[in-house]
Design a protein around this nucleic acid. Structure first.
Lengths: 254, 254
DNA sequence: CACTGTTTGCTAACGGTGTTCACTTAAGCG
DNA sequence: CGCTTAAGTGAACACCGTTAGCAAACAGTG
């Protein structure tokens, strides 16, 4: 008995047989309900038994489609990374290609908007790995994460080649940081492979700020003292824009 | 039948009766084991039955000491905030009082060190509230959180009064941000109540950066691409120091 | 058509969880 | 010493993930 993968491969011909189609549909239903339960009850509220109950079947039956609850969570997490990557890429594509500044602001705002409108999803994606076991195969999520980042990396690359901001010389990069920056740039697959370490340092510093402010907002660590976090995000965006030589514009109506 | 509080109050005389002492000891044991299980198995691995088993009693017996698993988690979370506040305050106190720069660096490094050496604790404290129900009484944690912040606020106040860095004029503060900054400063209880909004804006920007970099490290969102996050933290610390007019010094041995 | 092998879903079961209730035991107090 | 009250137990209920064995439906072939 072979363990079923979470996503099944199409057969040789490229077309799916009837059996494969209904199988795919059932799997999609499982993931749809799991996602809904995640949003409604949080990550601890996702259970195979409850999913099966809602589908009108029993929990052991789900094991024909999913190897277990952990793998299911990993799988929908990968879906969510792909969705986020799509949303950010779409926001980027909505702005005229020549308007680098507008594209950067739009992409980052799309990231925040998605985060605060999908708090449960964001928490499992960017929060601590409380339930996703470390041995799980997260390659699909990693790939989508890479795609998510690539939108920003491409835009950042434009800024560097347009010399929008003074790139710190390599001497200004702390020695201990250099190999880490190099490793980061390589793994992440920069558009221009000869990007300087100083530039990558600036990029990560910007990312840390935005990640930090979005995390604070989604995790609600200032919710009892601050009603609306958007001004903080916009302020951070403005700071980042200044450092990067990007023309800041307040969020358009639309 | 009155629900037992998680921490019992000492009686009028100030001394604890024998009964109250053993009660306190049992409660302490419960929390000690819960904490250990949290570290060992993560937040999902904390269970009343397992705690009771280790204590040689049964789960319902614990309900004499704790109203339920949620309240227990909230309670040890408050303990952890108090511990963190102590650690940071101790690091601050270890540096000569006149050396504001050194105290700032020491306090922030103590925060990061505690975070990475207490990842499970940090995750429940600063990560998404996945298991702490929103209706719980978190006043003790909030109070400790306030104390945790006050170390930094006091030091920041020194910087402001010493005019170490150019405080942005009020016109430079986005209108939308002003009431939020005001609310933040009031709730948090600044040492000097007439601190300007521009100064608070700078402070929160710094905090967001450090919070972000520590979260990334603890939540391991770059672990597959970066081995050691310390250089990133130190780099961010250096950036912050520059913006705040603080003399940066690399982490001393000791 | 009948036959065969596979896929699908079920029931039953094991061990784990939080929580409530009724009950017994034991400790402390007057 | 007797009485009050607190501490702890066992049984029960409703959940959870997971495995094993079995029956029915299905797809394809002789």
């Amino acid at each position: 008995m072979t363990k079923p993968p979470v996503t099944s491969e199409p057969r040789a011909g490229g077309t799916l047989s009837r059996r494969e189609r209904v199988r795919e549909a059932t799997l999609a239903e499982i993931k749809e309900i799991a996602r809904r339960h995640l949003v409604e009850f949080g990550v601890v509220g996702v259970s195979l038994r409850a999913i099966a109950r809602e589908m009108g079947m029993t929990a052991p039956g789900l094991y024909r489609y999913v190897p277990g609850i952990d793998a299911l969570l990993v799988s929908i997490t990968a879906d969510m990374y792909e969705e986020l990557a799509d949303v950010v890429a779409a926001a980027d594509a909505d702005v005229p290609a020549a308007d680098t500044d507008g594209r950067i602001l739009a992409s980052l705002r799309a990231f925040r908007t998605w985060a605060i409108t999908h708090q449960a999803e964001f928490s499992v994606m960017f929060g601590p790995r409380t339930r996703l076991d470390p041995e799980a195969d997260i390659s699909r999520a990693l790939e989508a994460g890479r795609r998510f980042g690539s939108t920003f990396f491409t835009l950042f690359d434009h800024l560097v080649s347009e010399e929008r901001f003074p790139v710190p010389p390599d001497e200004a990069v702390p020695d201990a940081l250099r190999p880490e920056l190099r490793s980061f740039a390589d793994t992440v697959g920069f558009t221009s492979p000869d990007i300087s370490e100083g530039a990558v340092m600036v990029l990560t510093a910007c990312w840390v700020r935005l990640y930090g402010v979005v995390c604070m907002e989604v995790f609600q660590h200032l919710s009892f003292v601050v009603r609306d976090m958007e001004p903080f995000f916009e302020s951070e965006l403005q700071n980042m824009a200044k450092d990067l030589g990007v023309r800041y514009a307040p969020p358009g109506r639309q």
